[in-house]
Each structure stands twice: as structure tokens, then as C-alpha cells.
Amino acid sequence: MTKLFEKFRRFNEKYYFIFVIFLFILAIVVNYSLQANFFKASVLRGFAKSVLPVAMLAAGEAFVIIGGGIDLSNGAIVSLVNCVIVYLFGVTGNTNLSVWWVVLIGIMAGMMAGLVNGILVAYLRLQAFVATFASSFLFAGLALLILPQPQGNVPSLLNTIYRGNFLGINFPIWVLILTLVIWLLLKSSRFGKSLFATGGDAKSAFLSGVKVPRVSMMTYVIAGLFSALCAVVVTMSMGTGDPLIGDSLNMNSIVAVVLGGTLMSGGRGGIFGTILGSAIIIMIRQIISFANVPTWWQQFVYGVIVMLILAGPGISLLIQRKHYDRN
């Protein structure tokens, strides 16, 4: 019996994402039982649109967490980039700048914000938790300065792209596929190895010749990039600017990363799981609303479900041990 559990534990360690896939399928089944038209193309398309911003933000967060850090400011970066983009469109949606330039500048702004985080954490050696919490106020404050209240319009081109199809697959799916491809390439590059090494054991990584500060800084820049991409997506779908849009997004992105099997302590995880984690979060929301949970209970039920899921692996370990003791 001992051997069997040991085997199970090893299997669990090696194929940690199996738990996520199981949850993902379970969520789909429950969702389908409550919402009969779940598999209709238009419903799925809508679903992909709700997943996309969460997945983008969580993908960036995953890089940071795998590298051994944490980013509490990514929601604020979303607000900032959203406001920068809308501001550059001249609030009315008419500007001399081309749409692409505006988007590019927005993305650069996000990466700059990430760079600030990266320098604080990797080179000034501030605690990631404290540094990014503090910088989140900086970015949120900047967003409010740029755009004091929700306002503005964006060119219709952006919305057209957002609703568009290419080869019969709609825009959000394309973005997710692209993100995954980039992740797989990065993962099998030398940067990928040094990322996992840095998160796994920074000291050993340093002794092995990994440029630890640079890698850790890069993760924050990448997080900034993905936060900006999230902001672009949000701007495309809302078509307006809101300085508080990102406020509630940060914790969700962290939950998505953890649900996806990435270790909070770093060194293990990936973007595939993170995207599944984001999808699971959205599905739980849908399930709660389709199950006719009274509005004032929804937040509570959501909390309980997420808590149970996150505790799942630990509880199963406890049960295994109980079982072992009895033998």
C-alpha cells in the first residue's frame, strides 16, 4: 500500500496539471448541465471573450510566480494602460496618431511599469510583495491623473478586430493560441530553463551561472507586457476608458495561476494550466449565476468554491496519510 501511495504522489508531482484538467472537465460538465446551450458556437464565443482578459493578466502573473516572485500591481497596470490608450485617442476617439501607434505606446507603458517593478525587486532587492503593492498605488494614481473619470471612445476599428474571425476562429481564441505557442517556444529556450532555475532555487541558479537578477527583472517586464495586452483587450471590448477598471483583477489573476497548478513558491508551472485556471474561474462564475444563487450569496459561494479547490491537493494528501497510518 505504501508503494502505491508513493507512486501516486510521484505521479501527482510529475503530472500536476492533471488535477487542473480534471477540474476543467468537471466545470464544463456542471456548466453544461445548468446551461443547455453551452456548446453553441455563439455562447462559446462569448465565453472565450470573458476568459481572454483574465487569461492574459494571469499569464503575466504566471511568469513572475514561476520565477519566484509575485506581482500585486498588474491590475493597476491594466487601469494605467487603458487610460493611456483612451487619452491618446483624444477621449473622443479621433486622433492624428494611427491606431497601431496608440496601441504600441500603451504596451510600452505597461512594459515600463513592469520594468519599474523589476528594478525594485531584482536590483534594489525590495520584497516583491511590498514593492509591487506600493507600485500598484503609483500606477493607479497615474491612471487617475491621466483620466480622472470614466470617459472616452476608441476607434471602431479596434472593436471590429475584437469581434472578427480569421479562418473561422474568432479573435480571443487566436490570441490564446498565440500565447501558448510563444510560451512553448520560450519554455524550451535557455531563458525558459533559467526562469525555472531562478524560481526553483535562486542561489543554486546563481552558482550555475544564471543571471538571476536579470531573469527576475525580465519576469516583471513580461508581466507588464501581458497586463498591457489585457488592457488592450479590455479597451477593445469596453470601447472606453475607466481609471478603476483593473482594481479587482489582480487577485483573480493570482487565483487563476494557482488553480492552474503553478507553485506559489516558484519553479513549477506553466501558461497552459494558467489559461485553464482562468477558464475555470469564469465557469464557476457562470455556474453560480445559472444555479440561481441569490445575488447577495454569490460572492460568498464563489469564495467557498475557490477555497475548496485550492485546498484540494492538501486535503487529498491528508486523506492519504490517514490511510497510511491505519495500515
Binding site: 524550451s188 532555475a197 526553483g200 551561472g209 544564471v210
Partner: peptide, 27 residues
């Protein structure tokens, strides 16, 4: 020791001097 527990033996031994094909690690 300078090993990273959550990486494989191969990844540990060749960390930062992996055999590559182009920019990618030749598994």
C-alpha cells in the same frame, strides 16, 4: 550543492550550457 530540485537531472547538469539547435534546447 547547486542543484534545483524541481528540475530534471539533465536540465540541472546542462543548465546554462544546454546543447541548442538555434535558440532552442535540443532535448
Amino acid at each position: 550543492l547547486s542543484l534545483i530540485p524541481r528540475m530534471t537531472i539533465a536540465e540541472n547538469i546542462w543548465l546554462m550550457h544546454e546543447p541548442t539547435r538555434g535558440t532552442f534546447v535540443n532535448q
